[in-house]
Simulated assay, not measured.
Amino acid sequence: MDRRRFLAGAGLAGASIVAGCGSLQEQSTRSPPLVENRPDATYYPTHREGMEMIGTKQAGDYMVGLTYSYPHRFWTVTGTTAEQVSIRDADSVHLMASVWDPETNTVLPIQSGVNIEIASDGETVADKQPWPMVSQNMGFHYGDNYQLDGEGVYELTVSISGMTERRLGAFDGNFGTSGKMSTNWEFSRAARDSISYTEFPDKQGDQAALDLMSMEMIPTSQLPATDALPGELLGTAKGSDEVYAATWLSDADFLGSGESYLAVSVHTPYNRVPLPMMSLDGTVDVGGETAFDDALTAAIHPDIGYHYGAVVPATGDPTVTVETVAPPQVSRHEGYETAFLATPTVEF
C-alpha cells in the first residue's frame, strides 16, 4: 500500500498548486470533522457528495462507466487495519470507474485490477490504478483522488485486466481477457463545485446507511436478496456487521455427478453491497463426514452475484462452517471504515 501511495504521489514534491485544483483549505470544507466515538459498524456519515457522469463505453467484454466528484478522504485496508488517505493540496477530483456485464448489468469486482490514464494534449497527466472500494451511496467501484493540470479537455483511458475469479453459469468463458476504452472529458472547476453536497449533523454516527444512488446509466452493485438466491438457502449470519448468506446448489449445470456447490454471499447491511477480496475457509460436513475443508474461491454467477464458493464432492444435507481469514481488502468511504474489519466464524 505504501508503495502504491508513493507512486501515486511521485512528481508532486515541490510542485505548486495548479490552476483549477483549489487549496487544501477550500477542499477541507467538503470534509467536516469525523464523528467522535464512531461505532465498529456501518454508520451514517457526516455528509454525502453527489457525482457527475463523464460517460459510459464498452471495453471488450466489459461496460465501463466513469464519474467524478470532489476530492475526498477515504480509507485503505491492510489486513484488519484501515488507514485514512487524506485530501492532498494538488488533488482536483475523485474519479470513479464502475465495471459491469452489459448483458445482465451485473457489477464485476475484478481483483486483478483497473487502471486509469489521464492525458492532455498528448502528455500523460496521471497513470495509476484506482483503489477497489465501497461507498454507501455508490456501492462497489474503483476510485481515487487525481491531480489534473488545470481546466480543459482530457482523454481518459481505462484498462481492465481479465478476471481471475471463477466465472459460473452464463459467465463461464467470459471476462477472461483484458479490455480498454477511451473517452474525452472537459473539466471545469465551476462544474465540479456545482456538484451536490449535503451534511447530516443530526444523523451522523447513527448505525444506519445512506440509500444507494439510482443511476440511469450505471447499474447498482447490489447482491440478490437472500430469498432470491438459487438452490437451498442454508441460512444467514451476521459477522462483524457484514451479513453472510449460504446457499447449497445440487443441480447446477456446472456440476458433475455426485457434486454440490456451496455459495457464500457476503454483503453490507442495509443495501446488500458485495464485499469482495476476502479470504474465507469453509468446512462442509455431509452425513456426519467431512466432505470439504479448504479455502472458498471468489466467484461470479449471474443469479448469485459475487460470492465465495466451492464444488463439494457430496450430496445431501450439509452442515457448514465459514471462517473469515481476512476481512474485505477493499478501501472504504466514510461510514464503512470502522466496519467489516474483524475475522468472525459463522455456522449454517
Rank of each mutant, 00 (worst) to 15 (best):
M1D: 08
G9N: 12
A13T: 14
A15T: 15
A19M: 11
S23E: 02
S31E: 14
E36S: 15
E36T: 15
A41L: 06
Y43N: 04
Y43I: 07
P45F: 10
T46P: 01
E49P: 00
E49T: 11
G50P: 03
M51F: 13
E52M: 13
G55C: 02
G60D: 06
Y62G: 03
P71S: 10
F74R: 02
T80N: 13
Q84K: 15
D101M: 07
E103R: 09
T104Q: 03
S112T: 15
N115V: 12
V125I: 12
D127G: 07
Q129A: 15
V134N: 11
G143Y: 09
Y154F: 12
E155R: 13
I160R: 09
G162V: 13
R167E: 08
F171T: 00
N174T: 13
G176M: 07
N184D: 12
F187E: 00
D193L: 14
T198W: 05
P201N: 04
K203L: 12
A209H: 03
L212N: 06
P230T: 06
L233A: 05
S240R: 09
D241R: 06
W248N: 04
S257G: 10
E259V: 01
S265L: 06
H267M: 08
N271I: 10
R272E: 02
S279D: 11
L280V: 00
D285K: 14
G287C: 07
G288A: 08
F292W: 04
D294K: 09
A298K: 04
A299D: 00
P302T: 02
V311K: 00
V312T: 02
P328C: 02
G335R: 04
F348E: 01
